[in-house]
Simulated scan of single mutants.
Amino acid sequence: MPELMSTVVDPDTFTIDQPTLTAADGLTLRPWTAADAPTVYEAFQDPAIRHWHVRTAESVEQVHEWILRWRAAWSTGNGQWAVDSDGEVAGRIGLRRSDLTEGVTELAYWTLPARRGRSIAPRAANMLTRWAFHDIGFDRIELTHSVHNPSSCRVAAKCGFPFEGTLRGAGRHSDGRHDMHLHARLRTD
């Protein structure tokens, strides 16, 4: 059946190599490499990261597999980047659940414990949001987090993602299902 409207984001955008994005403040978003696996493994030993995610890293070899999947997900519009600050990995940021036809994606991130409190997540989120709107052409970017995660709520507010509502029981965490706050920005904001 023919579509009445054209696809918002051109899928061919994701046939080129995943870009590295650099900000004037020294923050860099770059594709993950195999050399990053030990850092990701250590990140997933952190109780906070483990609590807010449905997985844990049991070995560096397992993380190597994650990195291969993260890199492959780029072709579907679901890019994952290492967040580098001062030449070291400070966290992860990515797009997930991308619907190229509708022009909607979701932002997801975490910051290494030693780098928290330095505005790494908001700076990376702002950089990726600008790129996703202006270079790629997404119309809407969503951000969800557990209602019990005030740090993520602060990141959303700092990045201009207005609160839109609560999604009941929408997120799984280590201690069961959580209600999730939904924040979103539009390209026209």
Rank of each mutant, 00 (worst) to 15 (best):
residue 144 T to P: 06
residue 133 F to P: 00
residue 132 A to H: 10
residue 135 D to F: 10
residue 116 R to S: 08
residue 144 T to E: 13
residue 127 M to E: 06
residue 143 L to A: 09
residue 147 V to P: 03
residue 150 P to R: 05
residue 128 L to W: 14
residue 146 S to W: 01
residue 113 P to V: 10
residue 130 R to W: 07
residue 131 W to S: 03
residue 139 D to K: 11
residue 141 I to L: 00
residue 148 H to Q: 11
residue 141 I to S: 07
residue 138 F to K: 03
residue 118 R to T: 12
residue 120 I to P: 03
residue 132 A to E: 00
residue 123 R to Q: 12
residue 118 R to D: 08
residue 116 R to N: 10
residue 129 T to N: 13
residue 134 H to V: 06
residue 113 P to A: 15
residue 126 N to T: 15
residue 149 N to Q: 07
residue 135 D to V: 12
residue 145 H to E: 03
residue 113 P to H: 15
residue 136 I to V: 14
residue 139 D to E: 12
residue 118 R to S: 07
residue 148 H to N: 12
residue 133 F to T: 05
residue 151 S to F: 01
residue 130 R to E: 09
residue 151 S to L: 06
residue 136 I to Q: 08
residue 145 H to K: 04
residue 144 T to F: 02
residue 137 G to S: 08
residue 114 A to R: 14
residue 136 I to K: 14
residue 141 I to Q: 05
residue 119 S to C: 08
residue 122 P to A: 11
residue 115 R to E: 15
residue 131 W to K: 03
residue 127 M to L: 13
residue 115 R to A: 15
residue 149 N to I: 00
residue 113 P to C: 05
residue 114 A to W: 13
residue 123 R to P: 08
residue 150 P to C: 09
residue 141 I to H: 02
residue 112 L to H: 15
residue 117 G to K: 06
residue 121 A to E: 02
residue 126 N to S: 15
residue 126 N to D: 12
residue 147 V to G: 07
residue 123 R to W: 09
residue 130 R to A: 11
residue 144 T to C: 06
residue 121 A to S: 13
residue 145 H to C: 09
residue 138 F to I: 07
residue 147 V to A: 04
residue 131 W to V: 02
residue 145 H to I: 01
residue 139 D to F: 11
residue 129 T to D: 03
residue 145 H to F: 06
residue 145 H to L: 05
residue 133 F to R: 09
residue 135 D to G: 09
residue 151 S to E: 05
residue 127 M to F: 02
residue 121 A to V: 00
residue 132 A to T: 10
residue 137 G to P: 13
residue 117 G to M: 03
residue 144 T to S: 14
residue 148 H to D: 12
residue 128 L to F: 13
residue 141 I to V: 07
residue 113 P to Q: 15
residue 138 F to L: 00
residue 126 N to V: 11
residue 150 P to H: 08
residue 146 S to E: 03
residue 125 A to R: 00
residue 121 A to W: 12
residue 139 D to V: 12
residue 147 V to I: 13
residue 151 S to V: 09
residue 117 G to Y: 05
residue 120 I to C: 12
residue 142 E to T: 14
residue 123 R to G: 00
residue 122 P to W: 14
